[in-house]
Every structure is written in structure tokens, then in C-alpha cells.
Design a protein around this nucleic acid. Structure first.
Lengths: 177, 177
DNA sequence: GCACCCTGTGTGATCTTATAACATCTGGAA
DNA sequence: TTCCAGATGTTATAAGATCACACAGGGTGC
């Protein structure tokens, strides 16, 4: 099941929270708060420290709801009164990525908040080349052609990067019009 | 079927006693020449210009038989008497990648010669985190979980990045020893 | 209390990767 | 011939990432 992130700008329309899965528009404020609360819970359960910088970076990524480069995050951190040198952002991102709160999109050299926090997973992403929106899905590395190739080569997979680039439905519609 | 690129550093590695370099140069000369000839044929068939710089970059990647960063390629180009500024390498790489002669490994920000030239394909890579060797396999984007997710989201996939990071058999053996 | 250590943060400098902008050259078409 | 498009060469700079070192805060053992 897909939790869809396909929004480039905040949609302030009066849509209900009960939108269909494919193009969900949702109560974003609650979504951010819930995710932050869940992250805090998970950190305290696992003895991890969700420090102010780390929390802020996660909050920023949840709010923006799209992929942000480390330097964009850094600008936002500076605005929020945190340190403004690259390591500040990279260290927070390293922590968040290591523990599954955010993912790096290799194709964009950018980061997104995880859409399925708490579950152990191999994420897969769909990246719209028009609006740069990013949706997260699940991949099953062991099952497909790659898994077969890895077994044949006796290659031990530890982590996978699966990213599809293309056009999201919304941008495809605009192209038709 | 996998065409295996699993070779450790050729020139720049510090000490490489275990690498099967001895044989390889023999087989490898023919392999490079064949691939270059095939590329030239394909270019003339399709009205593409395999210019000296482009040909040299492809030759370098075929020779090295591993992923090289753009700046490493640039150094080799300089040694060969070509221009030594980044755009020289990037433009050649853009051309070669666009037409399927080389692939970019997003995870490494590096480039490898295609192991299955001529076939339309969605490449998948296995990257050893120990020796950085890269092997190319085929992926089947439409078939797996990602394809299903894309159909469900009406996302039109144009290109996929599939890269598995892990440990190659050779490095795994050395770890055991 | 204190000293100690560990983790995290702040900062400057530096390194790597990639692109923008513009000049020049070359070969083919009008 | 002139013009044009594609390719190359070069300078400069943007964008992404890391290193090295100083220092702050909070536990722990004493």
C-alpha cells in the first residue's frame, strides 16, 4: 500500500481527510505532530536521543513533505536559530537516516521523511521529474530479478536503493490539458 | 545472466595481491576492443558521433572495468592529452549515458561501462561496500513491488535506479579467513 | 562537591561533484 | 561562400559532503 507524498506545494484546499489512497490529501498538521510524537516514543524506547536539532530536521522534512537537499535544510535550520554550518545538518540527517526516520534519495542527493516509520523496510521511491514530488513505496529486494542475480552471484545484499523516475499523475494530467 | 565486473582496484589500489589481474589483461584487451567496435557500429547505425573524447572515455571505463568518478576520468583524459576541465568529462559521460554505453551509479556518484550494450535494459547493480566492485544485472521494473505501486499510483516510470549495496563473494571470503 | 568521560554541537576550512556561461572550432547545408 | 548546429575548450562558480578541532552538557564514579 502506498502512502502518497505527491504534493509539491502545500494544498490548502478544503479537501476532507478521507481522500482516496492514490492522491491523498490529508490533515498535514496532525500528520506532522503524530509522526514527531511517534519518533519521540520510538527514540525513548530504544535509548536514542532525539535532540533539538535532530527533532527540528525531522519536523522540517515532515512539514515540507518532499525531498530537501541538505543545504536547503541547513537554511531552514539557520532560520530556526540552529548552527548554520553543513555538519550540523549532515549529522542530524545521518542520525535520522541511520534509524529509519528519513531516507536519502540518491538520485536527487536529497532527503525525505520516512512515510512508514517504525516498520523495518526497504523503501522504494517514485520521483516525478516535473514537480520533483516523491512517493514512498515498499520494495522486496529478495524477490525480484535483483534478488535472483544476487543469489546467483553469491552477493550479500545489505541495503538497496530503488528509485523510479517518471511523471506523477498530476503532472501527466497537466501535460494533457 | 550476470556479466560480472567484480574486480578490485586495478591501478590505484595500495596492494592487491589476491586480485586475479594476471589473466584478465589478456581476456580484457579483446573485451575492450570488441566493446569499442560494437559501440562504433551502433553509433554509425544510429547517426551518433562517437568522437575522440567520447570514445576515449568509453575506452577508459571499459579498461578500468569498475566504477570511476568523473574527476578520475578527467585525470585519465588529461593524461591522454584531452581537455582537463570538468565539462569535458561530463559532456562525454552525458552522451554515453544517454545512449546506454555507460551507466551512472547514483550511490557512488560514479560511472561504469555498460555490461550489456545494445540491449534495451533497466540495469541493476550490486556494489561491494568493501572493494567497491560493481556488477551489472537486469532489473524488471514493471514486475515487482515497485511496478505494482506505480500502477496503483498511476505513476509513469521512465527510468529506474536499482542498486544493491553489500558484500561481494570475494570480500566475504576474505572476512571469513 | 569534583574529575572524568562520552556524546553532541558549533565553526572554519577543505574536498568532491556538477553546472553555468561563453569563446572557438569544424563540418555540412543553403 | 555564409550560415548554422554540434562539439570542444576554458573560466568561474554552484552544490554536495567531510575533516579537524574546540567546547558544552550531562552522566558516572569518587
Amino acid at each position: 500500500m502506498i502512502r502518497n507524498n505527491m504534493t509539491s506545494d502545500a494544498q490548502t484546499g478544503p479537501d476532507d481527510a478521507a481522500a482516496p489512497v492514490g492522491f491523498e490529501s490529508h490533515d498535514h498538521t496532525a500528520c506532522v505532530e503524530d509522526a514527531l510524537a511517534a519518533a519521540e516514543t520510538r527514540c525513548s524506547e530504544h535509548g536514542l536521543r532525539l535532540t533539538p536539532v535532530r527533532r527540528k530536521v525531522l519536523e522540517l522534512l515532515l512539514q515540507e513533505h518532499r525531498a530537501l537537499g541538505a543545504y536547503a535544510i541547513l537554511d531552514l535550520l539557520r532560520d530556526a536559530g540552529f548552527g548554520s554550518q553543513p555538519p550540523v545538518a549532515y549529522r542530524a540527517l545521518d542520525f535520522l537516516a541511520e534509524h529509519g526516520f528519513v531516507h536519502k534519495i540518491e538520485r536527487l542527493n536529497a532527503f525525505v521523511a520516512c512515510a512508514h516509520p517504525g516498520e523495518t523496510h526497504s523503501p522504494a521511491f517514485m520521483i516525478c521529474r516535473v514537480c520533483e514530488a516523491v512517493a514512498e513505496a515498499q520494495s522486496t529486494p529478495a524477490k525480484g530479478a535483483l534478488g535472483a542475480a544476487a543469489r546467483a552471484a553469491r552477493f550479500q545484499i545489505e541495503r538497496t536503493v530503488v528509485e523510479a523516475e517518471g511523471v506523477c499523475p498530476s503532472c501527466a494530467n497537466q501535460a494533457d490539458a
